[in-house]
Amino acid sequence: MEKINNVTEFVFWGLSQNLEVEEACCVVFSLFYVVILLGNLFIMLIVYVGKLFKSPMYFFLSGLSFVDICYSSATTPKMIVDLLATSKTISYEGCMLQLFVVHFFGCTEIFILTVMAYDRYVAICKPLHYTTIMDQDRCNKMLLGTWLGGFLHSIIQVALVVQLPFCGPNEIDHYFCDVHPVLKLACTDTYVVSAVVTANTGSITLGSFVILLISYTVILVSLRKQSAEGRCKALSTCGSHIAVVIIFFGPCTFMYMRPDTTFPEDKMVAVFYTIVTPMLNPLIYTMRNAEVKNVMRKLWGRRVFWEANDNSWK
Rank of each mutant, 00 (worst) to 15 (best):
K78G: 00
G239K: 06
I219V: 06
H180F: 15
P181R: 01
F166A: 06
D310S: 10
T286F: 15
M142Q: 08
M255R: 03
L283I: 07
G150A: 03
V182R: 03
K88V: 02
Q98R: 15
T253V: 12
F53P: 09
K88E: 02
N309H: 14
V34M: 05
I110L: 15
S62V: 11
Y121D: 08
S227I: 00
R258E: 13
I124H: 04
M255Q: 02
A228K: 11
V81N: 05
T253E: 10
I46G: 10
P282N: 10
L160S: 07
A308V: 07
R297V: 14
N281K: 13
I46S: 10
A123V: 11
S87E: 14
T89H: 11
D82C: 03
V49R: 14
T146F: 01
S30I: 03
R303W: 14
T108P: 01
V35R: 04
C238E: 05
Y216S: 05
A199C: 11
C26S: 12
I69Y: 12
G150I: 05
G150E: 01
I90D: 02
F176G: 00
E229M: 02
P165A: 05
K54P: 09
A186T: 06
A74E: 02
F111W: 06
V271G: 01
N140H: 13
C70K: 02
D260Q: 06
F60K: 05
Q136Y: 07
F29T: 01
I275H: 02
T286N: 12
Y191K: 09
R297A: 10
E9N: 12
P165T: 04
I90C: 01
M79G: 06
I69N: 12
P56E: 08
Y92Q: 14
V276I: 11
E93A: 13
E22Q: 07
E20M: 03
V161P: 00
C70P: 07
C139I: 01
F59T: 12
Y285E: 05
G168E: 07
P259F: 03
L160R: 06
I246V: 14
Q157F: 13
T190C: 04
Y216I: 05
M79A: 10
A159R: 10
A243T: 10
V197A: 04
L220K: 11
L45A: 13
G14C: 00
W306D: 15
V182T: 10
N170Y: 07
F249D: 01
H129N: 07
L235A: 09
L31V: 06
Y191M: 12
F176N: 04
N40E: 01
T205H: 04
K225Y: 11
E2Q: 09
N281D: 15
K141M: 02
F66T: 11
G168K: 01
C107K: 10
G106N: 08
V162H: 09
